[in-house]
């Protein structure tokens, strides 16, 4: 087994680079409502649909697999499976967590989307300002949570360096039996102190030169 790298440190992939999302796939039991919502309300072109018998595995149902273009080469896809019993809705936390956030650039666009969604009878939240994003939340006809979000500022290098320390702290304490957020913050404090000492040493070295 290969050694697990430190959190956030990428393995050397050489010239290999992944280039964004080709498609994200969900399952629908409501094809008509899904088509109307994504094509007519969100304005996403329907660009492809596959219809096939369930050849993939022995018990794979016959299906339709259809794709909406999200822009920038990204797509949102749905499977409709013939004869598949409808699944129960996920709990509230999983519903909120497993969401798709769609990007706009400006506050004006965010406001305009909220107006459009309300005009089409979609229940949509007021804008919610997070750390670096401001977002609207609403559900598609399948109960999948969607978000439209705009940047409050761009991610900076300092955010990435801090994320490295956070994921290192989380990785360190998540191995424990009942990890808590306090455990993580205390470990992060140790890593931040180390970072501070290294920064001070580097500064001192630079001043001596």
């Amino acid at each position: 087994m290969s050694q697990i790298p430190a959190a956030g440190a990428p393995l050397d992939t050489g010239s290999l680079r992944l280039k964004g999302v080709d498609h994200l796939a969900h399952v629908t039991w409501k094809p008509e409502e899904t088509l109307h919502f994504y094509r007519d309300v969100l304005g996403l072109p329907l660009v492809h649909a596959i219809t096939a018998t369930g050849w993939v595995t022995e018990d794979f149902p016959d299906f339709v697999h259809f794709f909406f273009a999200l822009g920038k080469g990204n797509h949102l896809a749905f499977f409709y499976y013939f004869g598949l019993p409808e699944e129960e809705d996920p709990g509230d936390l999983m519903h909120r967590s497993r969401h798709l956030a769609l990007h706009v650039d400006t506050e004006e666009e965010l406001t305009a989307w909220r107006v459009r969604l309300k005009e089409h009878g979609v229940r949509v939240t007021p804008p919610l300002a997070h750390e670096l994003l401001e977002s609207l939340y609403f559900d598609d006809p399948n109960g999948i949570q969607l978000e439209i979000t705009r940047p409050l500022r761009a991610f900076a290098d300092v955010d990435a360096r801090d994320a490295e320390l956070t994921l290192r702290a989380l990785s360190d304490i998540a191995k424990g039996e009942r990890p808590t957020v306090e455990d993580m913050w205390r470990r992060k404090g140790e890593l931040a102190r180390d970072h501070a000492e290294q920064a001070a040493a580097a500064e001192e070295k630079a001043s001596i030169r």
Binding site: D162, T166, A169, E182, W185, R186, K188, G189, E190, A192
Partner: peptide, 18 residues
């Protein structure tokens, strides 16, 4: 601070007890 910032105030970590 707005809620998202206030409740993330400890994200840099600390030494001590919350």
């Amino acid at each position: 601070a707005r809620p998202a910032i206030w409740f993330a105030a400890l994200t840099g970590g600390y030494s001590g007890r919350l």
